[in-house]
């Protein structure tokens, strides 16, 4: 289980998150919703240790990972698919996957399993990542993160700019991870996608954690969406 306890974080002198509490349980999809600049991406980065955490703890199971250096987060089992994919674009598909397997002792079986999920990547192993289509790049970003065999998966706007068939593919991969007991934290702008996939939704406003509700509630009552997202 991933738990954020009173986490404050930002970038240098700019504070973005204020005493944020959050919890993602194994086998659930927790969606973060909020307006642009609310602090959703910073929440992801704070979990990964990729921005300045000034207060609070990030607990993974019983371990306080906020006390560890940033490169320990993936070793502890957190996979991160950032906004804009952030692939190693000058590397091949195979090399990007190899980076994902960096923390695994015996990664061959994992590599095969991940490539079975995205067979199109298997056909393009020697192709440079920058030459892939947007959808294929998202597949690679997802595959690279799944190579970590994470117990927690962070996805930051994974469907941004993708065509519907690709969105479905990514969605299926996320649901598969959830069914395997992975705690999924998802930032997504498309509300239909959120409502169709999320178990719970956490609203973030100006860096503060507001309400956490079952997604079921939002399917019938849209007042919270109007309040925190403006739709």
């Amino acid at each position: 289980m991933l738990r954020l306890e009173k986490v404050s974080a930002g970038y240098g002198p700019v504070q973005v998150l204020y005493d944020l509490d959050l919890e993602a349980k194994p086998g659930e999809i927790l969606c973060l919703l909020g307006r642009n600049g609310a602090g959703k991406t910073t929440t992801m980065r704070a979990i990964m240790g990729l921005c300045d955490r000034t207060n609070g703890r990030v607990m993974l199971g019983g371990t306080d990972i906020s006390a560890l250096p940033a490169h320990e987060a993936p070793r502890q089992g957190i996979g991160y698919i950032p906004q804009g994919r952030r692939l190693f674009t000058e590397m091949t598909v195979a090399e990007n996957i190899e980076i994902g397997l960096m923390t695994r002792k015996k990664g061959k079986a994992t590599r095969e399993r991940v490539l079975d999920m995205f067979p199109r990547l298997r056909e393009r192993l020697d192709q440079r990542a920058e030459t892939l289509s947007g959808g294929e790049q998202q597949m690679l970003a997802t595959a690279r993160a799944l190579c970590l065999e994470p117990s927690v998966l962070l996805l930051d706007e994974p469907t941004e700019g993708l065509q519907p068939s690709m969105i479905q593919l990514i969605r299926d991969a996320v649901v598969t991870m959830k069914d395997q007991g992975v705690a999924v934290v998802l930032v997504e702008q498309r509300l239909d996608a959120v409502l169709s996939i999320a178990d719970r939704v956490a609203f973030i406003e100006n860096g503060h954690g507001r309400e956490v509700v079952d997604a079921e509630v939002l399917r019938t009552d849209t007042s919270l969406l109007e309040k925190y997202v403006g739709v």
């Binding site: 070793r75 190899e98 690279r144």
Partner: peptide, 25 residues
């Protein structure tokens, strides 16, 4: 080699290199 891969990953995007367990320092 793996060492070269790690160095190139760090060169291309040190932030993401850390996110995949590479001890950048």
């Amino acid at each position: 080699t793996k060492v070269g891969l790690v160095m190139r990953a760090t060169q291309l995007d040190w932030d993401m290199a850390q996110a995949f367990g590479i001890p950048v320092d």
